[in-house]
Simulated assay, not measured.
Amino acid sequence: MRFFWGPMDCGKSTMALQMNYNHARQGRRGLVLTRIDRSLGPQVTTRIGLAHEAIEVTDELDLRTLVRERWSRNEGVDYLVCDEACFYTVEHVEQMAELVDRYDVDVFAFGLATDFRSYLFPAARRLFELADEVTRIQVQVLCWCGRQGLLNARVVGGSVARQGEQVVIGDTVDDAQVRYQVLCRRHYRTGDLGPGHPA
């Protein structure tokens, strides 16, 4: 089980689709899963325009049952690509570990580590605890000031939000009602969104 993490815009979904492509090209059979993709559909989409159909992960979905049902229909499953894994439940992460340990299914999970308040998502915390390998994605995301972007700020009404539901769908475009912006720690803490955005 491998967990690839980083802030928004670092290419997690792009890497997830590349991982699926590389494994499928070698004849391995896999499933692509997601939860709360930016498209709000059962697909993995990227900001650079790539997309792939996916299975939507709900609270009720048991990943082990999903794999066993495929096997019962003689549809092999060698690996899972789990995008937006930070939004899965902790139980889903436990199921991933069981698929790896009991059934030799490879799991490649991709997601954010922390929410808009800079606290770990529960599923991300469990992935850090259980994954065989944890890798920060190396595509560097920059804050508006040029420093490394580390934290995902939720922007509501032109200001950095400090309270609210852990998961709220938004985008990165300036005119969205709820949007997200990657900031360095300094500007995340001060709520400074850069020139043209009063703090």
Results as ranks from 00 to 15, higher is better:
Ile137Leu: 15
Lys12Pro: 02
Gly11Arg: 01
Gly196His: 07
Pro42Ile: 01
Phe128Val: 13
Gly27Glu: 01
Asp9Cys: 10
Cys145Leu: 10
Asn22Asp: 04
Ala153Met: 08
Gln26Glu: 01
Gln138Arg: 13
Ala113Glu: 11
His197Asn: 12
Gln177Thr: 13
Met96Cys: 15
Gln26Ala: 06
Gln140Glu: 14
Asp115Asn: 15
Thr89Ser: 14
Arg2Trp: 01
Cys143Arg: 07
Arg117Met: 15
Ile48Cys: 06
Glu84Gln: 14
Phe4Glu: 05
Val77Thr: 15
Val57Arg: 04
Ala161Ser: 09
Met1Phe: 07
Phe87Lys: 05
Gln95Tyr: 12
Ile55Ser: 03
Gly76His: 14
Phe3Met: 02
Ala161Trp: 06
Glu94Gly: 11
His197Ser: 05
Ala85Lys: 14
Thr58Ala: 07
Ala153Arg: 05
Leu80His: 06
Thr114Ser: 15
Val139Trp: 10
Leu61Phe: 05
Asp83Trp: 09
Leu142Phe: 14
Leu63Tyr: 05
His92Asp: 06
Arg162Pro: 04
Gln26His: 03
Gly196Lys: 10
Gly149Lys: 03
Arg25Ala: 06
Val90Asp: 08
Asp37Ser: 03
Arg162Phe: 06
Arg73Phe: 11
Arg126Lys: 15
Arg25Asp: 03
Lys12Thr: 01
Glu98Gln: 14
Arg154Tyr: 06
Glu53Ala: 08
Asp62Val: 10
Arg189Pro: 02
Arg179Cys: 03
Tyr119Pro: 00
Phe110Trp: 13
Arg25Pro: 00
Gly6Ile: 00
Gly49Ile: 03
Val90Arg: 12
Met19Thr: 11
Tyr119Gln: 12
Phe128Arg: 10
Phe108Arg: 09
Pro198Glu: 08
Val156Ala: 04
Arg64Ile: 15
Asp132Ser: 14
Asp104Gln: 13
Glu84Asp: 15
Val67Ser: 04
Val77Arg: 12
Arg28Met: 11
Thr190Asp: 01
Gly27Met: 05
Asp192Ala: 10
Glu56Cys: 05
Arg186Cys: 05
Arg35Leu: 02
Leu193Ala: 07
His187Phe: 07
Phe128Thr: 12
Ala51His: 05
Thr58Met: 07
Gly27Asn: 01
Val134Cys: 11
Val100Cys: 13
Ser159Met: 08
Leu31Tyr: 00
Thr172Gly: 03
Arg38Phe: 02
Leu80Phe: 11
Arg73Cys: 10
Ala85Trp: 12
Asn22Val: 04
Ala113Ser: 15
Val167Cys: 09
Lys12Phe: 09
Gly111Lys: 14
Arg38Pro: 06
Glu75Leu: 15
Asn74Thr: 11
Val156His: 04
Trp5Cys: 08
Val134Asp: 12
Val105Gln: 13
Val134Pro: 11
Leu150Met: 09
Val77Met: 14
Gln148His: 06
Leu120Tyr: 14
Val160Ala: 03
Gln18Gly: 00
Asp101Trp: 07
Tyr188Pro: 02
Cys82Gln: 07
Cys82Asn: 12
Phe3Lys: 00
Cys145Asp: 05
Asp106Val: 08
Val160Tyr: 00
His187Arg: 03
His197Val: 01
Arg154Pro: 09
Ser13Gly: 08
Ile55Asn: 02
Cys82Asp: 11
Phe121Pro: 04
